[in-house]
Amino acid sequence: MAFFFEVLIGGLMAGVMYSLVALGFVLIFKASGVFNFAQGAMVLFAGLFFVGFSEMGVPTWLSLLLTVAVMVVLAGAIERLVLRHLVNQEGIILFMATIGVSFFLDGFGQTIWGSNVKQLDVGIPTDPIFLMDGDILIQSFDLWAALVAGTLLASLVVFQKTRTGRALRAVADDHQAAQSVGIPLNVIWIIVWAIAGLVALVAGVMWGSKLGVQPAIVGLALKALPVLILGGFTSIPGAIIGGLIIGAGEKLAEVYIGPFVGGGIENWFAYVLALGFLLIRPQGLFGEKLIERV
């Protein structure tokens, strides 16, 4: 039993990391209807810049600040060079465009900073913690990750209550209405993408501290997609809960089913779970069901 809980907790914590990426997707999707395939690449991009600055001897706080600046500039560039020209295009075209952006960022980040694994240490403790008389072992890093995710979530919720946050939600509900009220769409988009960039930075620092900053992060971040399918594309709580379910589900599956089928199911379990879920509840756990009209 203790072993089960250990696996479960480990899975949930891994899930938190997926949620961090998924959050960025949801923010952008809610505000602009763009399904941003590049969120994973943005995580790597932010991580690379942060580590890069640190390795140059820049103090951590300054590196953080500089990377924030980079992500804001990136948001502006994406709006200026990509989104602006595709405003009224169908979702699928925008989606493919973000695949292009993803490849570009992936290549760009590595051209500047190289592709070797870079260790990242921002001082998050990594010693193990024992619960229940030492029966259950958890990593204190994982607890920190959960804490960071919680803080991020809380600040996003607070942000939504601010003036800008409300404007964002107005845009999410109705682009034309928002425009007619006088909120410049471009500005809104830049803000949203910048926030998603900050979320990516947080995710990049967390993932980087755990695994080192490396290109493989982009592939891992893909797991945020099944998370979204589970949680619903428009729901912030959905991103969190979806992440937890996926994280826990794949770890448990690997431990309890894996041995019978030769292992390695972690690689696809999340997707197949999401696929099954799509067939039952296409709008996700927290998404809204749309009735089409003509």
Partner: peptide, 11 residues
Amino acid sequence: LEFMVFGALIV
């Protein structure tokens, strides 16, 4: 570079 060029071309 290949990644960058492909990505840019797609967009």
